[in-house]
Simulated assay, not measured.
Amino acid sequence: MRIAIFGAGAIGGFLGVKLLQAGADVTFIARGAHLEAMRAQGVTLRSGGETVTVHPRCTSEPAEAGPQDYVFVTLKAHSLPVAAPQIAQLLGAETALVTGINGVPYWYFYGLDGPYRDRRVESVDPGGKLWELLPPSRVIGSVVYPAAEVVEPGVITHLDGDRITLGEPDGSKSPRVQALSKVMIQAGLKAPVRPRIRDELWVKLWGNLAFNPLSALTGATLERLATESDLRAVARTMMVEAQAVAEALGVRFLIGLDQRIQGTAEVGAHKTSMLQDLERGRPMEIDALLGAVVELGQLVGRPMPACELVLALVRERARQAGCYPSR
């Protein structure tokens, strides 16, 4: 099985090492110092008290890898439009595209029964260019739970989690998704195939849409945002608004709102990825995590005053920090 990891940073690198150990033919596609270190010294993964070093094929040029059976895209959402032409070079006639990206995906409405079927989400796919370059018929949706970080170029520490949920947008248990699940399980990962992948996507997004922007605005950790009564109230209000939007689109939430918030509190004094990006001067995932949710709220006619307020504030905070470039 030929698998490319496009964006082989922390999560992509962790996944790639595990798949390589399971016997898959894996190509890491990366750039910069991390790529050079992987080429020279291999990829070192520290996980569960063990350290392993592997020597995969590494490149910055997708054309060198050629068509794949599966391409995992583990970029941040705002990087996808720029990377799409390169990703397209990895697609053969039957290549499946596995999108391990936070937030509302560009393919969200693909094949979805109802009045919005095949609608483009402008916040994450301006002009529908992703839809054309990376046809959603190729997509296997995924929800990624592991936490990892690149502690130095070529060295990845796996912090927690081993589940990556998979799902076809049409809910089918296709041969391609079942084959992928099998090899991921052989790699020591939990890889359940769900018929309603959007439900699970929303459970993760539910917290991210509130806690990430609030952390960027306040500098607070997840623990404080989820336990300080005034901050928790703001997050909860945003989540209530988002739940109404999701349910209007047919989503079923299998856990309660306060249970979701409590799960966030249990993560502890952790900085969200959006706060870390702000502190490091990197582009922030504002549109995928909150902008697209507000767009969906406008689409289904649900008021979202708290989400709209926080969205305006965090966009301006990012602009002032040079972390929200104009599109």
Rank of each mutant, 00 (worst) to 15 (best):
A265C: 02
L166E: 05
V245Q: 11
Y116K: 01
T272G: 07
V267P: 00
E247F: 00
P115T: 14
M1F: 08
L159C: 02
I164K: 04
P325G: 12
D118C: 03
L254T: 12
G100R: 08
E241L: 02
P67V: 05
R120S: 11
S172E: 13
S326G: 11
T27W: 14
I3P: 13
T157V: 13
A187M: 00
G141H: 03
I255V: 13
A77N: 06
G188W: 15
Y116D: 05
E241Q: 01
V155P: 02
K76I: 09
M238W: 05
C307T: 12
L231C: 06
D113G: 12
G291Y: 03
V124D: 05
L299N: 04
P135V: 01
L45N: 04
A147R: 02
W202T: 00
A220M: 14
P283C: 12
Q243M: 15
Q243R: 15
E266D: 15
A65Y: 08
A4I: 08
G301L: 03
S326N: 13
A93D: 14
R224N: 12
D125H: 06
R46M: 11
S47C: 10
T27M: 09
G66K: 04
G219N: 09
L222N: 11
P67K: 07
L313P: 13
P153D: 03
P146L: 04
R260C: 07
R280P: 01
L180E: 02
H78L: 05
P192A: 00
G16H: 03
K18L: 13
V234Q: 10
S229E: 15
G281P: 12
E149P: 00
G268H: 05
Q178P: 06
P303F: 01
V150G: 05
D230I: 11
S172Y: 02
Q178D: 12
P56I: 01
V267N: 00
G268W: 02
G127I: 06
A292F: 05
